[in-house]
Design a binder for these strands. Structure first.
Length: 849
DNA sequence: AGCTATGGCCGGGCAC
DNA sequence: GTGCCCGGCCAT
């Protein structure tokens, strides 16, 4: 820690907001080290520019201490910094003790003097503190109640919120819809709705992509050294700009490539090429990249420095992990789309790998151009390739009516983080930022992790899985076999509902009131407060109600325009991301509000709801085929039975049980989390079955897909025998293909991702073995790489090093068998019989030997 | 400096 | 051989 040089924080430049800036959206905040002032970036949709607005405050960084100012003044280290700190006595509310508390606010009058602004420096100096982990600009936002992504206006040099009020008809409609709600929840929901309904501006933006010459084939250029020249840069922007600039240093009379709908230009020296790049970057309020934090912007900055550009001339500032622009926002889409919560809950797992090609292909259907080695491309090929990358990068934000941009703005409003932070941080930081903001609004002390742990203790249940901290969800044993007419019901937002209905929050669990101690959470030895509404319960509960009662229905409302439905769909998706993460973070040690009893109680209420719903189903005479966490699979229930069950859960548990899907028929094996369901239209829903997994060789997974297609065609039990014949033919043909070695090596390659660096493996699994062979042969290998290998008689070989004759066919037949078996078992079919092998039982082996 | 959780299946590797 | 753990991938 200690002093941080001013050079590290480069002054922003660009347009300073006039004193009468019309309504503009607050997008980003920071600290200008040169002026020692806080600044906000405000996006003004009419001029389509970002303006800087300066605030005279410099009190951005502070901590709160239990010690009195007198005690703190006795701290020798503190007195080393007399000019930078002020001490102020303030009252806060200690939610854990449920009483007010006087504390000392230690303010760093120059945040840069204190550990780079993170506040860690203050903690180091004065010891035990609260609230010192907050990034300095967040203090600024929290203390003023500013909401990123919302409109503000500059009037006579002051920042004034533009109060967006819900239109009266919407207000009335919501008041009516939420009439049954507790008023505390209703008020909260109205405030959230105000943020969520406020129009999202269309943001002018440009995507940029660079190509670099590589002298060594297969080696990625090093952005920190930036030794090799930048050969092409492309832009694709929301205002229609599509431009490629190419480096043609030799000055040879090469023909300028012609690309329809795009400008192409040659630059004879790299320095002027860079000048042009910086000019374009400076023109846009938002710049998009795919991996610009680690590559494109880093390379541009360092390359420019190598070419003797001064820092002031380069509009890029590099942090240790991120790259920022001095005149706008840099959004690295790689980071945003790689965020697990975004991938799974916002984009339905439509991509699984961390490449532009995979993400773009999965989300928008647009792929990278297939080309050979970059160095060997003609100018035209290089230009088209590079431009396509910029095009599809921009496409990630423009598809579906700017869905991704809207998602970012809405989530930034919910989490109270700027878009730059939101897109770079994980879901636990989003929820933390939201919780911290709420604490400040209420004048609550933000507790340290130890404070919560000390007051609330650990867990009291025992996990099913060794090494886990507490018991999680229930998974019912499935009833194996083929079942026609299966209805799947699931609890809408089970865990958020549990948090809401049971008033779960770190301060309400195990509260200090004697009379609450009988109010037990089922299945635990924890009690919960009966006097006060918990903060987590209120926030998560309101968001959940808003999603279930308002935004999910609106997203499907046929009376709305497609644009309106799309918008509401974005809102409900954003809420879903927060809700789904809200339970898990409290069980994560890394989360600063870690509260084991809270996570444990949430899961316990979930088990309670699930168990009681299954009991009630049985009581109603419905056969429960399977259940997992929050869903029950029912064998041909009548409409009346379903109605009675859902009415029961609503009445008894206060949780909505909805019809999730209906299968014409479903196949269960004896394994949990493994089944196949066929919808009325013949489409197939596959869960957990090996044949669907990413690492399975295409030859096997394609065969599996064919199997499911055959099953998808079955409409009645009477058609099953015919399908079985088709399956017989399929199995024989795949078996023959293997036996005849009639395949390309890529078809039978397992594709497994390296979860860590090679050196970090303690064991030697197959994909690691193959990776090591590749490495020894000279291929660079890193975490996240997907290793393709085939199984050979002596172990494994990477595809690149194997030959067809090396392949151990029997191993592949075994894989084929185990994969098919999961479904064939339930169909009373036997793989060995089908391929004419003797049955591989231990008894058979014994007698056959 | 990466971090929401637990439950479950599968194959391979290793110790006994 | 059996049992256990690891690593990857998935369900919720």
């Amino acid at each position: 820690m200690g002093f941080r040089s001013e050079e590290e924080v480069s002054a922003p430049r660009g347009r300073v907001a006039p004193d009468d800036l019309p309504p503009s959206y607050f997008l980003s905040a920071g600290y200008d080290g040169k002026q020692e002032k806080a600044f906000l970036r405000l996006y003004e949709p009419e001029s389509r520019q970002v303006y800087l607005w300066y605030d005279n405050t410099s009190h951005l960084s502070y901590a709160v201490s239990k010690e009195t100012p007198e005690q703190l003044r006795g701290n020798r280290r503190l007195m080393d910094y007399p000019g930078f700190l002020t001490l102020e006595r303030v009252e806060k509310f200690d939610a854990i003790a449920d009483e007010p508390v006087m504390v000392t606010k230690v303010v760093a009058t120059n945040p840069l003097a204190i550990g780079g602004g993170a506040g860690g420096g203050i903690r180091n100096i004065i010891g035990e503190t609260w609230e010192s982990r907050i990034r300095y600009y967040q203090n600024y936002i929290y203390d003023r109640g500013l909401i990123p992504g919302m409109p503000y206006r500059v009037e006579a040099g002051n920042l004034v919120p533009v109060e967006y009020e819900l239109p009266e008809d919407i207000q009335a409609e919501m008041q009516e819809a939420f009439a049954k709600e507790d008023p505390e929840f209703r008020d909260n929901m109205m405030e959230w709705a105000r943020l969520l309904q406020c129009p999202v501006p269309v943001m002018r933006r440009v995507a940029v992509d660079i190509e670099v010459y590589t002298s060594v084939a297969n080696r990625l250029p090093n952005p920190d050294e930036a030794i090799e020249p930048i050969t092409a840069v492309s832009f694709a922007a929301s205002d229609g700009l599509r431009r490629v600039i190419l480096l043609n240093e030799t000055g040879e009379a090469a023909a300028l490539p012609v690309i329809e709908g795009a400008e192409v230009a040659f630059y004879e020296d790299e320095r002027s090429l860079l000048a042009e790049v910086f000019r374009v970057l400076d023109e846009y309020p938002v710049v998009l990249t795919f991996n610009g934090d680690n590559f494109d912007l880093r390379y541009l900055k360092n390359r420019a420095q190598n070419l003797a550009y001064s820092n002031d001339e380069i509009p890029i500032t590099l942090g240790r992990r991120f790259a920022y622009l001095r005149n706008g926002l840099h959004i690295d889409l790689y980071r945003f789309f790689m965020n697990n919560a975004i991938r799974v809950y916002a984009f339905g797992n439509r991509y699984r790998e961390n490449t532009l090609d995979a993400v773009s292909g999965g989300v928008t259907g647009r792929k990278k151009l297939e080309v050979g080695a970059i160095n060997d491309l003609t100018f035209e090929e290089l230009a088209r390739y590079c431009l396509n990358d910029a095009d599809i990068t921009y496409g990630l934000t423009s598809f579906n009516d700017d869905l991704a941009m809207k998602l970012m703005v809405i989530m930034s409003r919910i989490s109270k983080q700027t878009m730059e932070d939101l897109t770079r941080m994980g879901v636990s930081r989003w929820i933390l930022a939201l919780m911290e903001w709420e604490h400040r609004q209420r004048g609550w002390l933000i507790p340290n992790a130890q404070d919560i742990l000390l007051a609330k203790g650990g867990t009291t249940t025992t996990a099913m899985i060794k090494g886990k901290k507490y018991k999680g969800a229930i998974v019912q044993d499935p009833k194996p076999g083929v079942h026609f007419g299966v209805t799947v019901l699931d609890f809408a937002s089970l865990y958020p509902s549990a948090i809401r209905n049971w008033n779960l929050s770190y301060e309400t669990l195990l509260c200090s009131h004697e009379d609450c101690k009988t109010n037990m959470v089922p299945g635990t030895s924890h009690w919960v407060c009966t006097h006060k509404r918990g903060m987590t319960s209120l926030i998560i509960g309101s968001l959940k109600d808003l999603r279930v009662l308002r935004y999910k229905p609106l997203a499907k409302d046929p009376s709305l325009t497609p644009e309106e439905r799309t918008y509401y769909n974005v809102v409900q998706a954003a809420l879903k991301v927060f809700l789904n993460a809200s339970y898990g973070v409290f069980g994560a040690e890394s989360f600063p509000l870690y509260c084991p009893p809270l996570a444990e109680s949430t899961a316990a209420v979930g088990r309670y709801a699930m168990t009681r719903a299954i009991e009630e189903s049985t009581r109603l005479g419905i056969d429960v085929l399977y259940g997992d966490t929050d869903s029950v699979f029912l064998a041909h229930p009548t409409q009346e039975q379903v109605d009675r069950l859902t009415a029961w859960t609503d009445r008894e548990l206060g949780i909505d049980l909805d019809i999730d899907k209906e299968y014409r028929y479903a196949i269960f094996s004896k394994r949990k989390k493994n089944y196949l369901g066929v919808f009325a239209d013949g489409s197939v829903d596959i869960k957990g079955l090996t044949g669907k997994k990413r690492h399975i060789p295409p030859l096997l997974s394609n065969a599996f897909m064919e199997l499911t297609t055959i099953l998808g065609g079955v409409e009645t039990p009477g058609e099953m025998p015919e399908a079985k014949k088709e399956i017989q033919v399929l199995v024989e043909s795949v078996y023959a293909k293997l036996k005849d070695r009639d395949f390309d090596l890529n078809e039978i390659a397992f594709r497994v991702m390296l979860g860590r660096k090679l050196s970090a493996y303690e064991t030697n699994p197959q994909h690691v073995k193959a990776a090591k062979m590749l490495r020894d042969q000279g291929t660079p290998i890193d975490m996240g790489d997907i290793i393709r290998y085939v199984i050979t008689k002596n172990g494994v070989k990477p595809v690149q090093m194997a030959a067809n004759r090396d392949v151990d066919i029997n191993k592949y037949v075994d894989h084929l068998e185990s994969m098919f078996e999961q479904l064939l078992d339930a169909l009373d079919m036997d793989f060995d019989t089908m391929v004419g092998r003797p049955k591989q039982t231990s008894l058979g082996k014994f007698f056959g030997a």
